[in-house]
């Protein structure tokens, strides 16, 4: 028998993983929040106006905590991958938009790299804080700039998702998700200017960058999760799975009405 791809069968095959991936976004948001705020206590972040000696002192005093946050960061960051792979998959298979799906995935991959690099560089900075303070300062700057470079990758993701959702007549992702994406992009514009300032509301610890955009990023992950779960439910409804709870029973395939 010649193998023929059947979209319904493909979907059912990975349905459980899809739901797990979608809920992973909540776990990522919650996990990073705990790691960043409670383990690392990087709030408020080190002031960009500090001298290198002060900064080295900050890392010496909080060494254990920051190292723990680095490890925690590496443990939760991977949750990013399945969520955005799922978003790409939905864009490609259910909206027939393979290019936008790939652009979205590319942005997500780059964003993931920057998130990893941020956690890595605060770990590097805290690993040997007794070194020459200027090197610690450089590592600290690297960490924060990697964090802010996720802005650009998130923007390309949001634009790709927005264009597909708004253009389409189908409603798999909810429409509000598309408009939320535009808002996230405009909000993120403020973060593009971080390298220009060492003080004021737009430096990397500023009110409009750190205090506005870190919660915005969390909201963005949570909304991606919520919209993905809704999209999976919509797909379930389309192919006729009435029971809305997640179940791992593959015999359900028999109840599918094509």
């Amino acid at each position: 028998m010649i193998y023929q791809p059947d979209p319904v069968r493909t979907y059912l095959n990975e349905r459980t993983y899809s739901y797990l991936s979608a809920y992973g976004g909540y776990a990522f948001a919650a996990g990073s929040f705990i790691v960043f705020f409670f383990v690392g206590r990087m709030v408020p972040p080190p002031d960009p106006g500090w001298s290198s000696v002060e900064l080295a002192q900050f890392y010496t005093e909080n060494q254990t905590r920051i190292l723990a946050a680095g490890v925690g960061g590496l443990l939760v960051s991977w949750l990013y991958m399945p969520l955005y792979s799922l978003v790409s998959e939905i864009l490609e298979k259910h909206y027939d938009a393979p290019l936008a799906a790939k652009v979205q995935l590319f942005g997500a991959i780059m964003g993931e790299v920057f998130v990893y690099l941020m956690f890595m560089f605060i770990t590097f900075a805290a690993y040997r804080p007794e070194r020459d303070p200027e090197i610690t300062q450089m590592l600290n700057d690297c960490a924060w700039f990697f964090a802010w470079w996720t802005v650009s990758t998130v923007q390309i993701q949001t634009v790709a998702i927005f264009v597909v959702i708004i253009k389409s007549k189908e409603e798999i992702f909810p429409r509000w998700f598309g408009w939320f994406m535009v808002w996230a992009t405009t909000g993120a514009c403020l973060g593009c200017f971080v390298p220009l300032f060492k003080s004021g509301p737009l430096a990397y610890d500023g009110e409009l960058t750190f205090w506005f955009m870190v919660p915005l990023y969390g909201l963005y992950c949570i909304c991606c999760s919520a919209a993905s779960v809704k999209a999976l439910r919509n797909i379930d409804e389309r192919i006729g799975i009435v029971d809305k709870s997640v179940d791992t029973d593959f015999d359900r395939e028999t109840s599918v009405s094509n």
């Binding site: 509000w176 598309g178 408009w179 939320f180 808002w183 405009t186 909000g187 509301p201 409009l208 506005f212």
Partner: peptide
């Protein structure tokens, strides 16, 4: 317009409202 579109409008209003506050605080 489209009801979902107002998420964007209200979000922008909230963002600029926050920016006005930051300006005055500084």
């Amino acid at each position: 317009g489209e009801p979902a579109f107002w998420i964007f409008i209200v979000g922008e209003m909230a963002m600029f409202g926050f920016m006005y506050l930051v300006f005055l605080c500084y």
